[in-house]
Simulated scan of single mutants.
Amino acid sequence: MTSGWRRARDVGHLVWDPVRDELTPAAAQTRVLRLRSRVWLILQAALGAALAWWIARDLLGHPLPFFAPVTAMICLGMTYGDRVRRIAELTIGVAIGILTADIFVHVFGSGVWQILAVCVVAMALAVLAGAGQMLMMQAGIQGVIVTTLVAGEGEAFNRWLDAVVGGGVALGIAMLAPVRSTTERPRARATMVLGNLVEVLTDTAQALRNRDAERARAALGRARDLSTQLEALRDSTAEALAAARLAPLLSRDSRDDVQEVHALMNPLDLAIRNVRVLVRQAHLALLEDQPVPDRYTDLVTGLAEASAGILEQLEQRERLEDAQEDLVLLARDSTWSATGAGLSAEIIRGQVRSTVVDLLVLSGMSTADARRRVPPTRDQLGPDSADR
């Protein structure tokens, strides 16, 4: 059998894994999932190309409207962040390159120096029109294509109009039929980030309980990775918000879903920062053999369990407010300090309290109410705590 190929037992056929140079069931599953997530985008690009070709050839009468479907596909491949502006810029950039090249070819013909001149002029005009680097390069690329492809008689100045048609078709499709996965991706990524946060807290609690500094170090590394994951979540949420604003046919449930995840960003960011400090102090306490009372370790465990409750509500699309009771109880338990606790242990307790505030806000409580639910002293707990 050729190197890099093997028969996957659970799928019954050959699978190619270019990274490991062997075939694995996991690689096959990954590619199938990737295809499923991109099917709608593929269909949009194909529809855009066909529609742009039909408009330019059958409605406008252009014999070979090559640039119409090409421009439509390029535009539909762009993300939703500022999509209207970016599609407009790309269409203008492509049209500038094509029009510049058409004029040069019409006046001076094709050749080496014409390619040089077209590239310089087209990219310079694109920059003057406010285009970024990618759009500047598109203007140059389209100019080169036009310069090297001689137009038929009477077609010289039709090609820039084909680019405009392609951009217009792309914009219409983007507004009427956004990629469904774009609006679904934020919730999936939010649950992934929150799930990893739960794992970090769980491992930290176990490391404290078993006095395992190596496990705490590994948890600290994963806690630092949470910031990168959060940035990816921010990007996907911003893209989904842009899609929700652009697409009039998008369901109200999809719009509300994106807005709900967007509201989680700031408190989740603060929670991740506080947990990172918590884990760092846990690692330091274990390295320096500082005392950490069992009750403080229980607080970290309780924080992990409360976070898992929020995760479950988020996955099942239920009210996040249902997880607030556990957080309030945890806030009460964190009010008392323990005798003999080291400096790092007290910082851990403080970070638990700060994270509780963040998670209460994440679950829908106002910041002022969340802070009131985490009283600084036992005396401020109120009469219902007299039995403690």
Rank of each mutant, 00 (worst) to 15 (best):
S3P: 14
W5N: 03
R6Y: 10
D10R: 15
G12Y: 09
R20V: 14
A28N: 06
L33Y: 09
R36N: 05
R36K: 05
R38L: 07
A45C: 07
G48H: 08
A52R: 07
W54V: 11
W54P: 00
P69K: 04
V70F: 15
T71D: 01
T71L: 03
T79P: 01
V94T: 10
A95V: 06
V107W: 08
S110W: 14
W113E: 02
V118W: 00
A129P: 03
G130Y: 11
Q138C: 01
G140Y: 14
G143P: 01
T147W: 11
R159V: 13
G168T: 14
V169N: 00
V169K: 00
L171Q: 08
L171S: 06
L176E: 06
P178K: 02
V198H: 02
V198A: 04
T204K: 00
A205C: 02
A213G: 01
R215I: 08
A218H: 10
A218M: 11
L220Q: 14
R222E: 15
A223G: 09
D225C: 03
S227M: 10
T228D: 15
Q229T: 07
L230G: 01
S236C: 13
E239D: 15
A244R: 01
A247E: 02
P248R: 07
S251T: 14
S251E: 11
D257I: 04
D257W: 07
V261E: 01
L270D: 14
A271C: 03
I272H: 02
V275A: 00
V275Y: 01
V275D: 00
R276T: 13
V277G: 05
L278Y: 02
A282Y: 04
H283N: 09
H283E: 13
E288T: 10
Q290M: 09
Q290D: 10
Q290E: 15
V292H: 04
P293T: 08
P293F: 04
D294N: 10
L299I: 06
G309N: 10
L311Y: 12
Q313Y: 14
Q313D: 13
L320Y: 06
L320R: 00
L327D: 04
W336F: 13
A338H: 11
L343Q: 11
A345W: 05
E346L: 12
R349V: 06
G350E: 09
L362M: 13
M365V: 07
A370H: 08
R373W: 15
Q380L: 15
